[in-house]
Design a protein around this nucleic acid. Sequence first.
DNA 1: TATAATGTTTGAAC
DNA 2: AGTTCAAACATTAT
Length: 243
Amino acid sequence: MPEGPTIVILKDETLQFVGKKVLRVSGNTKIEKERMLNQQIVAIKSWGKHFLVCFKTFTLKVHFMLFGSYRVNEKKDAPPRLSLEMSNGELNFYSCSVKFIEEDLDTVYDWSADVMSDMWDPKKAKQALKQVPDMLVCDALLTQSIFAGVGNIIKNEVLFRIRVHPLSRVGALPVKQLNMLINEARNYSFDFLEWKRKYELKKHWLAHTKSICPRCNIPFTRKHLGKTNRRSFFCNNCQVLYE
DNA sequence: TATAATGTTTGAAC
DNA sequence: AGTTCAAACATTAT
């Protein structure tokens, strides 16, 4: 369900729990959830699509995959995978993956790869892309080690914005287009964040799920492309194929 | 109502 | 042995 910007919204909604102790845990997860009991939440972070609840000596990682969802201070009419109750409210996660991380997060995550992070480093992304010249751009955008947080919606919208065909090879992109790819991955993600906050994200989609190109007024092509085999919506006329 | 979709890991098969 | 690919997980809008 969520791409990176949605996790940022969740992080904002849950900052109220930083400093609080977990007073009750429940849910159908098989992990040792009781270890969180009476533990203080020392920080709440995110990396790409990973939502991270930090305790003193370990971290809870929540990944929502395709169908996961959450509720803050309310419940859904479904059994939670994990529910945490604090003195000032509750946090409920549904049909998602939950795991514990024992290591220091700074050794697990490269924060500079997260397009939503203050530490995002476009130069690093460029270096990483240079390492995979044969990769298709539709796959490159979905590579979390390079563009953590980018999902299929962002992929389709970014490629449409920069007028690049999804089947273009990374190594064939002119410098200008390569720079636009990197810059728009972050820039569109922040537009996504703003629109999502206002509950008007879909209204702003120009390519994703669309059937007509708003620039050319001709039908989009829709196909499952790349190693990721995710659906792509693109215009054969105004999105240039570099190969 | 069947289908497909904002995703990733795992392990079998080649 | 490295790569590829299907399966698994599981919800909901169309």
